[in-house]
Computed example of a mutant assay.
Amino acid sequence: MRLDRSRWSGWTLALLAAALPTVAAQAESAFPEHALRVIVPFTPGSGSDNASRFFGEKLAGELGQPVVIENRPGAAGNIGLQAAKAAPADGYTIVLASNSPMCVNPLVMKDLPYDPVRDFKPISGLSRGMNVVLVPPDSPYDSLQELVAAARAAAAPMNVGTYSEGYRLAAEWLASLGGFAFANVPYKGQAPIMTDIIGGRLDFALVDLGGARELIQDGKVKALAVSGEQRNRNLPDVPTIRESGFADYVQYSWVSFYVRSETPPEATATLADALQKILDTDEARAFVARSGSELMPYAPERMAAFQRTEQDRFRRIAEAAGIRPQ
């Protein structure tokens, strides 16, 4: 029997046409094909850095590709955000960002080299944690009330250590409520602040509780107050700032993973889905419990809405404290 060449050609074309969508789908689902990196705009040792390493390790396990953590501190987070903005928008570069670079920097800094909304989009919220007011271990102050009274009476402003514009704004808010002035001493990260507060080179500091908890429990620094709605379960003897006479003061620092806004939807969805699985594990819950934080498992849309709410909140704080972009 002779084979009809025209019919055979038609069958071949039909089979190829049917296979093309499958091939395309396989190509789209290939992400990720190689290692990813997470840019952290702060030095090692902070709560943000610890979160990036934990969730980066779990993300590597979920995606089957290495995840490299790259600390790019400096300029209140701007160096890290600029590096992420300059990277290809392919999903292989993630930036861990907090309320400081994503909400506060636009309020306090002129000529910002990135736009938090236009240049980046969230792939998942991760966690939120309280701040803590610390003094050196041999400080004469045993309460926030004593510290504020001394700051009011001091001949010169006290030196306060912070490592981002978010913490500086939080300190400005406390100072405006307490009626005192301070001299901000900016750092690239929390670890050097802890060194200087232990050594008595700072009068006090406002930092992430998660990165300071062990030093507090070891007696190497003294905690006067935490910024949460309630006391931290790991430090039940440390009062809140609200309990210390500032009823309106509640402040949390949060961290989230972002990618370039032009990142393809398929890659964004892959990353977001993987992170939602990780956040819904006992291991993730145990990690944030150890650090004294809370999970913030916000999917992309919810995280974007939350960020807008936070931008409005920090704007009100900045206006109340009389802060303008400089």
Rank of each mutant, 00 (worst) to 15 (best):
R2Q: 10
L3A: 13
L3M: 13
D4V: 01
R7I: 12
W8H: 07
T12W: 06
L13V: 13
L15A: 14
L16I: 11
A19H: 02
L20A: 15
T22E: 09
V23Q: 11
A24H: 11
A24E: 11
Q26E: 14
E28S: 11
F31V: 04
A35F: 08
R37E: 15
V38S: 07
G47Y: 08
G47S: 15
D49M: 02
D49A: 14
L59H: 07
E62D: 04
V68A: 13
R72G: 07
P73V: 10
A76S: 15
G77F: 12
A83S: 12
A87V: 11
G91L: 10
T93Q: 04
A97Q: 06
S100A: 15
V104M: 08
K110S: 14
D111M: 04
P137L: 11
D138S: 05
S139Y: 05
Y141T: 02
D142I: 03
D142G: 15
E146G: 05
V148S: 06
A149Y: 07
A149N: 07
A150T: 10
A155M: 07
P157I: 04
V160I: 11
V160H: 06
E165Y: 04
A171S: 14
E172G: 00
L174F: 08
G179R: 01
A181N: 14
A181F: 10
A183F: 01
A183I: 00
Q190N: 11
P192S: 11
M194V: 04
D196W: 02
D196H: 10
D196C: 01
G199R: 10
G200T: 13
L202Y: 01
F204G: 08
R213P: 02
D218H: 05
K222A: 03
L224G: 03
A225C: 10
R233Y: 09
P239G: 01
R242M: 12
E243N: 09
V255Q: 12
S261Q: 14
P265N: 09
E266Y: 03
D273F: 06
L275H: 02
Q276G: 15
D280V: 00
D282H: 02
A284C: 11
V288C: 05
A289W: 00
G292N: 06
S293F: 13
L295M: 09
E301T: 12
E301C: 03
M303P: 04
R308K: 13
T309L: 11
E310D: 15
R315C: 01
R316M: 04
E319Q: 13
R324T: 10
